[in-house]
Write a protein that binds this DNA or RNA. Structure first.
Ligand SMILES: [Mn+2]
Ligand SMILES: [Mn+2]
Ligand SMILES: [Zn+2]
Ligand SMILES: [Zn+2]
Lengths: 138, 138
DNA sequence: TAGCAGATTGATAATGATTATCATTATTAG
DNA sequence: CTAATAATGATAATCATTATCAATCTGCTA
C-alpha cells in the first residue's frame, strides 16, 4: 500500500543509494537533514524499514537485535528467519572453494580469518503462521 | 593474560556450550544465575567477551552494533573487520552451487529467499595499525 | 469552498541492550 | 599479617531503536 514515494522517502532513498559505506539509520538521518531539514528521526526509521520491505534497499545486521553467542566453535553456517529473527545452525556445510575465498578476501583487501554463509528465509513456524493469515485474508 | 577460568567463567562457558539456541547475553545471565546467584550482569558481559576473545565461544551479530543499510540490492557478499567493525562490499562474487544452497536450506527447514557470504578478518587499516603495536611491543 | 475522516509526520518519552563507574571484595606478594 | 592489586557487581549512563500522540496534511464530500 505504499506505491509512490513522497519527498522524504525519495530523499532517504537517494542518500542510501549514493552512499557506498552501508550507513546506519542515524547517519542517513544526518545526511537527509541537509536537504529536508524538518524531517524527524522517527520518520527516517519508518522510511528505511518501508524501503527495505519494498526491496528498494537492504538491511544488514538485525538477525534479531541482540548479540547472540554460540558454544560451537567449529566452522558452520546459519539460517536466519526474516520474519521472527530465529537463528538456526545449518546441519550441513555449504562448501565453497578455498580459492574463491582467498581471491575474494584479497580483492577486498582483508586478511581472512574465518567465514560464514547466511541463508535468509522463513522458518517452519513462520511459514505456517503466514499461510494461516493468507488463507484468512484471501 | 586470562589463562585459567574461575568459577564464574566456567559457569558461563558451561551454559553457552550446553545451549543449542545461540543465547543472548541476558539469557546466559539468567541461566548462570541459577548456579552462581551472586554474579552480576556486568560480569557476564565481561566474561562472554573474554571467552570469545580466547576463541572458546563465538559472537554472532555485532558487525558493529547498529543496523546498517545497503543501497545495492543486487546479491553480493561482505567482508567484516573483526577489529574495527568495518563492513565492506566484496567486489567479486563468492560462488556456491544452487544445489548446495537448496539442500542446506531444506536440512534447516527454511524456505530460502536469499543468502550472503561473510568474510571475517582484518581490514587494511587495522592490519597496519596492529603491526605498529606489535613492533613497539616486541 | 468549508468541513471532516483518515493518514502522515515529527517531537519527545520510553525501552532494551550494552558499557562505564566505582566502591567493595577477593588475591597475591612481601 | 599487611599492603598493593586485580576482579566483581550494583548502579548509572549511553546508544540505537521504537512507541506515543498531538499537530499537520490529504483527499473527498456536501
Ligand atoms: Mn551456530
Ligand atoms: Mn553491500
Ligand atoms: Zn521464523
Ligand atoms: Zn578494521
Amino acid at each position: 500500500m505504499k506505491e509512490t514515494l513522497n519527498a522524504n522517502a525519495q530523499a532517504v532513498l537517494e542518500v542510501v543509494r549514493r552512499s557506498h559505506n552501508h550507513p546506519t539509520a542515524l547517519e542517513v538521518y544526518e545526511a537527509v537533514r541537509k536537504v529536508r531539514p524538518r524531517i524527524g528521526v522517527a520518520s527516517v526509521y519508518r522510511i528505511l524499514h518501508s524501503l527495505a520491505q519494498q526491496g528498494l534497499i537492504r538491511e544488514l545486521g538485525r538477525s534479531d537485535e541482540a548479540c547472540r553467542y554460540d558454544g560451537h566453535i567449529e566452522r558452520h553456517d546459519h539460517a536466519i528467519c526474516t520474519a521472527c529473527g530465529a537463528l538456526l545452525d545449518l546441519p550441513v556445510e555449504v562448501r565453497l572453494s578455498e580459492e574463491a575465498l582467498r581471491s575474494a578476501a584479497q580483492a577486498a583487501g582483508i586478511e581472512l580469518h574465518s567465514h560464514e554463509v547466511r541463508l535468509y528465509g522463513l522458518c517452519t513456524a513462520c511459514r505456517q503462521r503466514l499461510q494461516q493469515v493468507e488463507s484468512v485474508e484471501g
